[in-house]
Design a binder for these strands. Structure first.
Length: 501
RNA sequence: GGCGCAUUGGUGUAGUUGGUUAACACGCUGCCCUCUCAAGGCAGAGAUCACGGGUUCGAGUCCCGUAUGCGCUGCCA
């Protein structure tokens, strides 16, 4: 039997990185086993579901290169069938109508309210399963329903015994039926609820393995009860450890902002393969310890058995621009930028330069070779694709900024440089051919003649040519910037004009 | 409150059926390289394996308890 797995997000916001990881693991498992990876949008919460969110989920999967097989299933399309199925359960006596008037609660303090109610009931010795309508005679139930009295449909959970299943990640799971309340399947307004819909859709889609967040572990017992009620085979379950914030709290949009959104990583210059690689390592580890893994290698090495049980902390520092997200994620992105095949990086740099209005069509044409060399030169110390348009700006435009600290350190601090820099420009203009080697030769010769240390000229040149104090080997920079532009920038008066002198 | 799950250096993880100095990656420190910053190379700091009991010749690995965290407990998903 071919495995069929699914990623089933609810479209109530952007694609969360935890959800993205679930998608990744499902996808990996499908590809590993030669099975199918399906996408189901759980849009039954009409209040909160948005089309924009659905779009962002699809975009996110595309960005991570997680292709899904078959058509997307929208859960709301199946609501009618879900209603029918729930009513059938009532007919069969496996579920019952609950005529208790609906309690309205606000979403806010609900967790606390639940705990308080449980405490109160425990104090009064009330069994939370004791529902007056559970054993209402069928005739009376039918009559009241026919009379238009509103009711919810609840599953009749067995009184005695326990539910058991083996989770591929968490092992043997057992829960006494006495701990499971008669869950509501259909709201009094006829709206099918989560547990009902997931099970029915999973049955309908032929899902063989349910791989999802650990927050569903306890509820799995309820869902198994439903599989049994519908006489359907129970799939295998693999629950994933959760991804937590640095303070070990649940990652949430409200508290942690955009760092938890997948699109943030795309927008802030992550290479998809790098982020995918990082995500794979959150909760899973490769058998041989090799951590830099391509999509294909990930598929090859992936196994559900390699998934850990402890929740993972996703480390980030909101107010530190250098560490705005997890250090390892940043490192991995840098690693990809400097080592991935240049041909794969080029289009990404192109997109970045385009959005920064630095792209010129010549880079695809006459200056293709130059462009490739320039990217090759500067990629080695960049962390994100954004760096190509910020730190790398001077390579693609005359309109770049001088870093004040760099100017002070490499230019203003040494007043004697004001004369030799333009003189160096004169010298460089006559170098033929103009390469890193010949530029070095010329600069060193000039250094000797003018009696100015080579280091001073080199560092000064770097700041004159790029506005910065750091960067690639200076002679390579001369070659890439070119003779004319180099000479022009060496003669610039901007550092003195802008930062005094 | 009840039930469940988890707990290895700052972070992510590895530690096969219990067996010597707890491994790897990121981060951190120093040195080398060097025109700067990275990268790279080398060296190093950092873990009484949450705590307390037990079983055993021997436990990070098994058992019990405690603590902490997280999850579920909803006519949310």
């Amino acid at each position: 039997m071919t495995t069929r797995v699914r990623f089933a997000p609810s479209p109530t916001g952007y694609l969360h990185i935890g959800a993205a990881r679930s998608a990744l693991f499902n996808w990996l498992y499908a590809r590993k086993t030669g099975g199918k990876f399906l996408l189901r949008v759980e849009d039954t919460d009409l209040q909160r579901s948005t089309e924009e969110s659905t779009r962002s989920i699809i975009e996110g999967l595309k960005w991570l290169e997680l292709d899904y097989d078959e058509e997307i299933v929208f859960q709301s399309d199946n609501a009618d069938e879900h209603r029918v199925a729930a009513r059938r359960l009532v007919e069969e006596g496996q579920a019952y109508r609950d005529f208790t008037p609906k309690e309205t609660r606000d979403d806010k303090g609900i967790k606390q309210e639940i705990a308080e109610r449980a405490r109160a009931q425990a104090a009064e010795g009330v069994d939370h399963r004791s529902n007056p309508f559970r054993n209402l005679p069928k005739e009376e139930s039918d009559r009241r329903a026919a009379g238009g009295e509103p009711f919810a449909i609840r599953l009749k959970v067995p009184v005695e015994g326990a539910s058991r299943f083996t989770d591929i990640v968490y092992g043997e799971q057992e829960r006494s039926y006495s701990e499971i309340e008669d869950l509501v399947l259909l709201r009094s307004d006829g709206h099918p609820l989560y547990n009902l819909s997931v099970v029915l859709d999973d049955i309908e889609m032929g899902i063989t393995h349910v791989i999802r967040g650990q927050d569903h572990l306890t509820n799995t017992h309820k869902q198994i009860l439903l599989y049994q009620a519908f006489g359907a085979p129970v799939p295998k379950f693999a629950h994933l450890p959760l991804i937590l914030a640095p303070n070990k709290a649940k990652l949430s949009k409200r508290k942690h902002g955009e760092v938890v959104s997948l699109t943030t990583y795309r927008d802030r210059g992550f290479v998809p393969a790098a982020f995918r690689n990082f995500l794979a390592l959150l909760g899973w580890s490769p058998p041989d310890g090799k951590e830099i893994l391509s999509r294909e290698e990930l598929v090859e090495k992936f196994s559900l058995e390699g998934i850990g049980r402890a929740n993972a902390v996703f480390n980030f520092h909101e107010n530190d621009p250098r560490h705005w997200t997890d250090d390892k994620a940043l490192w991995m992105n840098a690693e990809y930028i400097r080592t991935m095949p240049l041909a794969e990086l080029l289009p990404m740099v192109k997109d970045e330069l385009r959005s920064a209005k630095l792209w010129r069509e010549e880079y695809d044409d006459d200056e293709r070779e130059w462009f490739e060399k320039a990217v090759e030169l500067i990629r080695h110390r960049f962390f994100t694709l954004k760096d190509f348009s910020s730190q790398g700006r001077a390579y693609f435009s005359e309109d770049f900024d001088f870093d004040e600290a760099a100017v002070k350190k490499n230019i203003l601090k040494e007043p004697r440089l004001r004369e030799p820099l333009p003189a160096l420009a004169d010298r460089l203009e006559n170098v033929e051919p103009f390469t890193a080697a010949t530029a070095e030769e010329a600069l060193r010769a000039f250094s000797e003649e003018a009696g100015v240390k080579a280091g001073l000229l080199i560092n000064g040149s770097r700041t004159m040519l790029t506005g910065q104090a750091v960067g690639p080997s200076m002679f390579e920079v001369f070659e890439i910037i070119g003779r004319e532009r180099s000479a022009m920038r060496l003669r610039s008066q901007r550092p003195w004009n802008e930062f005094g002198g």
